[in-house]
Measured scan of single mutants.
Amino acid sequence: LEELEQFARTFKQRRIKLGFTQGDVGLAMGKLYGNDFSQTTISRFEALNLSFKNMCKLKPLLEKWLNDAE
């Protein structure tokens, strides 16, 4: 759980530094990986307001997006 919290904080910082909005991330993930995510989902991930199971599902996709975006 602590690792997920740390990743969520780091993800938000890096996303902002790269100049992407939460909506940009959701749209890009849909185009790149075929998984559409709303701005609300990205927001809830960053705020740790998703279930642990959903956080675990999203983490690898967000890590991949972040690596591809950098």
Results as ranks from 00 to 15, higher is better:
L1D: 03
L1C: 02
L1A: 07
L1N: 14
L1I: 06
L1W: 10
L1T: 14
L1S: 11
E2V: 09
E2A: 05
E2T: 03
E2N: 15
E2P: 01
E2L: 08
E3I: 08
E3W: 03
E3Q: 13
E3N: 06
L4A: 04
E5L: 07
E5Q: 09
E5W: 08
E5P: 02
E5C: 08
Q6A: 07
Q6D: 13
F7G: 02
F7C: 06
F7K: 01
F7I: 02
F7L: 03
F7W: 07
A8R: 04
A8Q: 01
A8G: 03
R9G: 08
R9V: 06
R9E: 07
R9M: 07
R9L: 08
T10A: 11
T10F: 13
T10R: 12
T10Q: 14
T10D: 14
F11Q: 00
F11I: 03
F11P: 00
K12H: 06
K12I: 14
Q13F: 11
Q13V: 12
Q13G: 11
Q13S: 13
Q13T: 13
Q13E: 15
Q13P: 03
R14P: 00
R14L: 07
R14C: 06
R14Y: 05
R14N: 14
R14T: 14
R14F: 05
R15I: 01
R15L: 01
R15E: 00
R15S: 00
R15D: 00
R15T: 00
R15A: 00
I16V: 11
K17S: 13
K17E: 08
L18G: 05
G19K: 07
G19F: 02
G19S: 06
G19Y: 00
F20M: 06
F20G: 01
F20P: 00
F20N: 02
F20W: 09
F20R: 08
T21Q: 04
T21G: 06
T21E: 05
T21R: 05
T21V: 02
Q22M: 10
Q22W: 13
Q22K: 10
Q22G: 04
Q22L: 12
G23S: 12
G23P: 06
G23R: 13
G23W: 08
G23Y: 04
D24M: 06
D24L: 04
D24N: 07
D24P: 00
D24T: 04
D24E: 07
V25H: 00
V25C: 04
V25Q: 00
V25K: 01
V25A: 13
V25E: 00
G26Q: 15
G26Y: 07
G26N: 11
G26T: 12
G26L: 09
G26F: 04
L27E: 09
L27M: 11
A28P: 01
A28C: 06
A28H: 09
A28E: 15
A28T: 14
A28R: 11
M29F: 05
M29T: 08
G30P: 04
G30A: 11
G30C: 09
G30D: 09
G30M: 15
G30E: 06
K31E: 09
K31I: 06
K31M: 05
L32W: 04
L32S: 13
L32A: 13
L32N: 05
L32E: 13
Y33C: 10
Y33N: 05
G34E: 15
G34M: 04
G34L: 04
G34S: 09
G34F: 04
G34Y: 09
N35S: 08
N35L: 11
N35R: 12
N35Q: 07
N35T: 04
N35Y: 13
N35A: 12
D36Y: 14
D36S: 10
D36K: 11
D36W: 10
D36Q: 10
F37E: 03
F37M: 12
F37D: 02
F37L: 10
F37I: 15
S38M: 07
S38N: 15
S38D: 15
S38V: 08
S38C: 12
S38K: 09
S38L: 05
Q39G: 11
Q39M: 12
Q39T: 15
Q39A: 11
Q39Y: 15
Q39N: 03
Q39K: 11
T40Y: 14
T40N: 06
T40S: 14
T40K: 15
T41C: 15
T41I: 06
T41P: 04
T41M: 15
T41A: 10
I42Y: 02
I42P: 01
I42C: 02
I42Q: 02
I42W: 01
S43A: 13
S43H: 11
S43T: 10
S43R: 12
R44Q: 15
R44H: 05
R44K: 14
F45V: 02
F45M: 06
F45K: 00
F45D: 00
F45R: 00
E46G: 00
E46P: 01
E46N: 00
E46K: 02
E46H: 00
A47C: 13
A47I: 11
A47N: 12
A47W: 03
A47T: 14
A47P: 01
A47R: 07
A47D: 15
L48E: 14
L48G: 11
L48M: 11
L48N: 12
L48F: 15
N49Y: 03
N49S: 13
N49G: 13
N49A: 12
N49T: 14
N49H: 12
L50V: 11
L50M: 10
L50K: 01
L50S: 05
S51R: 07
S51Y: 02
S51P: 13
F52V: 11
F52C: 09
F52I: 11
F52E: 10
K53E: 13
K53L: 12
N54R: 13
N54D: 15
N54A: 10
N54Q: 15
N54S: 15
M55I: 05
M55W: 03
C56F: 11
C56Q: 15
C56K: 14
C56N: 09
C56R: 14
C56D: 10
C56W: 10
C56T: 15
C56A: 12
K57L: 08
K57T: 14
K57W: 09
K57D: 02
L58F: 13
L58A: 13
L58S: 04
L58D: 02
L58P: 01
L58E: 02
K59E: 03
K59N: 02
K59W: 08
K59H: 07
P60E: 06
P60D: 08
P60A: 06
P60L: 05
L61V: 09
L61F: 15
L61Q: 14
L61K: 14
L61W: 14
L62V: 10
E63A: 03
K64T: 13
K64F: 04
K64W: 03
K64C: 06
K64E: 12
K64R: 10
W65A: 02
W65H: 02
W65L: 03
W65G: 01
W65K: 01
W65T: 02
L66K: 00
L66H: 02
L66W: 04
L66Q: 02
L66V: 13
L66M: 11
N67D: 04
N67Y: 02
D68Q: 09
D68R: 12
D68M: 08
D68W: 05
D68L: 07
A69I: 14
A69N: 15
A69L: 11
A69Y: 06
A69C: 12
E70W: 08
E70L: 09
E70A: 10
